[in-house]
Design a protein around this nucleic acid. Structure first.
Lengths: 344, 344
DNA sequence: ACAGCGATTGACAACGTTATCTATACGCTA
DNA sequence: TAGCGTATAGATAACGTTGTCAATCGCTGT
């Protein structure tokens, strides 16, 4: 192994395999019209020399680039890391590079920023994570520019193009069902950020579960949150100050659930003795707080991996293939923050 | 603004400015020997056409690449995100790209992986975050390969090359001082991961503070941790099970401090009434747990930004300049998990 | 055996930039 | 004013790959 300089080029591979560089190019790009034995021979040499095509040269010569951008707007660090590692994994496996692009959903210059990115980095496609997965204006521009995309956990599932989502609604439904089984009747909910699809579907799951079990929907028990700890704190305070306060609170993510826990401790309310609290996402935080949170595990990394694969697929096929959406499942994680409803 | 294809090239700039492409190249690379008025004219055209050099072409033609790799081994998500955004900021400002490279400190193939990265992506330099900042074998290889680096928070500050560090020792000293002022005498410490420099210096700070205040160092109060929540849980259990248990515990990071808090709650020990707990890093977690943690804020993002700038500087100067280390300061954040020592 | 035709392969010109080497312009000394 | 050295500028060849188009191979049907 020699470091730094002098990496293997396509020419060396071609010479050693006794073919032209174009044939090697065909092999590494999975093109048709290469005889099986030729292909095999070339692949053997590639393996032997440990040849890797130079991404810059491909960029320069090719019609499309090998950079995929991951767009994100400030979700929680752990969510973001999962997203990244999933995307990174697929990119690595398929020889693409991942470009990180933080950007504000409500940023005035969003479209200009992304345009710059596309032009500068020759980005043939991007991954949109929530809430960008529902930035309608941006998505239209992308289609107009001929830039592909894959969306993660969008609200608007009718829009064309591939996306990967989890069954947020079903998972919330299941979670609320669990609480009801434990004897809870007054269950409060802290809704997620209105820009995010996930919040929307989790709320729907709550409503469905309540209705299906014949429980009344009390507007006082429904509070808007914004996925932040602080918003959970505030919403929790509101819910727990009600004269007829809920015996259980479902927060649409773990950060907000941690806020509820915080307030409950401040107010001297025992969890889960007097109050059950549940979150969503199964972030590390859910294990770190006390008592540890009942929550829902989402396969974020796997979602990112799949979305990236779908995107790469579309890039390879120049957007001609229409890989459908893929749905994934969540699993309920029951920990110490939920228990039987108190006897009143 | 036109998206997707047909970006401006150096030729168009050259033609419009009435110079050769080489002159344009000189201007954009800050090379000497360009008359001031020529330079100005070229810059004007560049601005007018909104020209951006094509990174791939630069890679291909140039002696060095424009990709900087950030090496990391699984620190906490929030730390990692801060690291990334700092590095990203500098890269963006200076026209470099950031490549993320997760890698295991103890991985057998570490050097081979990095070599691959360097060869494939033409990486002229990398940023080493803890604990990679002290991967002696890797660093020697890098020097051998002629690949530059900048280190973040290393243990071995004697080694040549730029690094950025905070005064971990001083901050821990100050924190322990604060606890002593509050009347604490038996102060336990949960040490950080032995691979990380930070853990080392924080422990030194503890020792110095204890000695300086004339307090005995009790081996029973010193427990090895590994920066994880679980290790904090275990270490906390050990400390709190002592017959003569400490009235305060300093954990070398927030995750471990959260573990101590968790155990204290399990054991029915009131915080801060019967036990004070302090962490380090000021992660979001420190605000989310209850009671919120007294901790130390580190300018992680700023460190990453500076380290990246230093690295880029060295790359531009081909490693000839020897920018020295830069040190940054931490600040004590006093919250609700610490208080006066209980009256025995 | 031979034309015909698709499957397979190759030669060579891009792609946009930097590096090298050469040519000109300018300012100074004798 | 000639001569010389040094700033400044340009022409052209890389860099490693893909795209285009032409050439050849190998099979089919007669």
């Amino acid at each position: 192994m020699q470091g730094g300089s002098g990496s293997v080029t396509i020419h060396e591979v071609a010479e050693k395999a006794g073919v032209s560089i174009k044939t090697v190019s065909r092999v590494i790009n999975h093109e048709a019209n290469v005889r099986a034995d030729t292909k095999e021979r070339v692949l053997a040499v590639i393996a032997e020399l440990n040849y890797r095509p130079n991404p810059s040269a491909r960029h320069l010569a090719g019609t499309h680039g090998y950079n995929i951008a991951l767009l994100y707007d400030n979700p929680s660090p752990s969510y973001l890391i999962d997203l990244q590692s999933g995307a990174l994994e697929s990119c690595h496996a398929e020889g693409f590079h991942l470009i990180l692009q933080p950007c504000g959903f409500h940023d005035q210059n969003l479209e200009a920023t992304i345009n710059n990115l596309i032009v500068e980095s020759r980005v043939p496609g991007l991954i949109l994570s929530p809430p960008l997965s529902d930035a309608a204006g941006l998505i239209e521009k992308l289609e107009q520019w001929g830039v592909l995309h894959a969306r993660i956990a969008p609200i608007d599932v009718a829009r064309p193009g591939p996306y990967v989502a989890v069954d947020d609604r079903g998972a919330a439904f299941e979670l609320i069902g669990h609480l009801i089984e434990q004897g809870h009747r007054r269950i409060g909910i802290i809704k997620g950020h209105p820009d995010h699809g996930a919040g929307h579907w989790r709320y729907e799951g709550y409503l469905t579960a309540m209705r299906q079990h014949g429980l009344p929907i009390d507007e006082d028990l429904i509070v808007q949150g914004y996925f932040s700890f602080e918003s959970g704190l505030e919403a929790g305070r509101k819910l727990l100050s009600l004269s007829d306060r809920p015996t259980a609170i479902f927060a649409a993510n773990d950060d907000m659930a941690a806020g509820v826990l915080h307030i409950a401790h401040d107010m001297g309310i025992d969890v889960p003795g007097q109050l059950s609290v549940a979150g969503f996402d199964d972030t590390p935080l859910s294990r770190h707080v006390w008592p540890s949170l009942t929550t829902v595990r989402q396969p974020v990394q796997e979602m990112a991996r799949q979305a990236t694969m779908q995107l790469i697929d579309r890039i390879r096929k120049r957007g001609l293939s229409e890989s459908g959406p893929s749905a994934m499942y969540c699993s309920l994680v029951i920990r110490d923050s939920t228990g039987a409803a108190p006897n009143l």
